[in-house]
């Protein structure tokens, strides 16, 4: 009593009975695909937040005292800029290493004869994007021939791989959700055909299409909640395993750890799946019922 049972025995057919399992499997795959996408996005975000470095090249001057004074003014001007963490004068050893590919390993006398610019590295706070033009303008107000370049270390191959993984993960997630919709539509249509006599009876009793469609909708939603919960739990276990287990052995399989926002995004996968399943079942049932008078 009390209306718990559906008017249509939708669990009686194999297609309907296995719907929860199918949904569980697809939610598992969708969650994994989305995890790849969000972890890749996390890696991209972290790379974007690495401290940016500008290098200011001040041409050599004849008078060392004048050079020291100019350098001090430039560094003071740079350190007054918002977001600058610190500035440092590139040491002679580092300068030697920089020119070594061009002049080879030269003697101290030979190096002394080279007129090299003085280089100042300007390191910004993480996440701060330097305004190259503004920095250049400030520096040139003191040293008109100064050059300013960005020398931040590149994200390199890791960033490129992360970008590709983000698209692959997102695309795979969408593909799996599309398959989920197709499966639900096919199962609903098959169930509608299998239960045509009961559907006919409900309609003879005056049931409008939305009432009959609601039966399929409720069954699909229950299957989505059951299967989706199991599929998502398994996916979570897999993700946590991939992220944390290798750490026990001192290695790392996944180059990023999910952030709180990533978990929230992942948690939307079963919710979106349940919503899609419910709407697909409703659409398929309404469409199928429209064929009947």
């Amino acid at each position: 009593m009390g209306g718990e049972a559906l008017d249509l025995p939708l669990d009686d057919t194999p297609a309907s009975r296995f719907l929860a399992w199918l949904i569980g499997g697809l939610v598992f795959l969708a969650a994994l695909a989305c995890a790849v996408a969000v972890l890749a996005q996390g890696a991209i975000d972290r790379l974007a937040e690495r401290p940016r470095i500008l290098t200011v090249a001040l041409p050599a001057v004849d008078d060392p005292a004048e050079g020291e004074a100019e350098l001090a003014r430039v560094r003071a001007a740079l350190e007054a800029l918002p977001g600058v963490a610190w500035t440092v004068l590139v040491s002679q050893e580092e300068l030697d290493k920089l020119v070594e590919p061009w002049i080879g390993r030269a003697s101290a006398e030979a190096r002394a004869e080279l007129i090299l610019p003085r280089l100042v590295d300007v390191r910004f706070q993480p996440g701060v994007v330097p305004d190259l033009e503004e920095v250049t303008r400030r520096v040139r107000a003191i040293a008109p021939a100064a050059m300013v370049d960005e020398t931040s270390p590149s994200g390199g191959a890791l960033e490129e791989v992360a970008r590709r993984l983000r698209w692959i993960g997102g695309g795979a997630g969408l593909l799996v959700l599309t398959v989920l919709v197709v499966v639900v539509v096919l199962v609903t249509r098959a169930s509608l055909d299998l239960h045509d006599e009961t559907v006919d009876l409900l309609r003879l009793l005056g049931a409008p299409d939305r009432y009959v469609a609601r039966q399929f909708e409720l069954h699909a939603m229950a299957s989505a909640l059951r299967g989706g919960s199991v599929g998502f739990a398994l996916a979570l276990g897999t993700i946590l395993g991939l992220v944390h287990l290798p750490a026990l052995f001192g290695t790392r399989l996944v180059p990023a750890v999910p952030r709180p926002l990533d978990w929230i995004l992942l948690a939307t996968v079963p919710v979106v799946a349940a919503l899609l399943v419910t709407l697909s079942a409703r659409f398929a049932a309404i469409h199928g019922l429209a064929r009947l008078r």
């Binding site: 009593m1 009390g2 209306g3 049972a5 008017d7 025995p9 009686d12 006599e197 009961t198 009876l201 409900l202 009793l205 005056g206 049931a207 009432y211």
Partner: peptide, 24 residues
Amino acid sequence: FRLLDHLSAFDNVALPLRIGGADE
């Protein structure tokens, strides 16, 4: 008869009322 085999006698009789939107 055309009764629904998976429903109880109560729920079979309740069917037209539920379709009509009567409260439980």
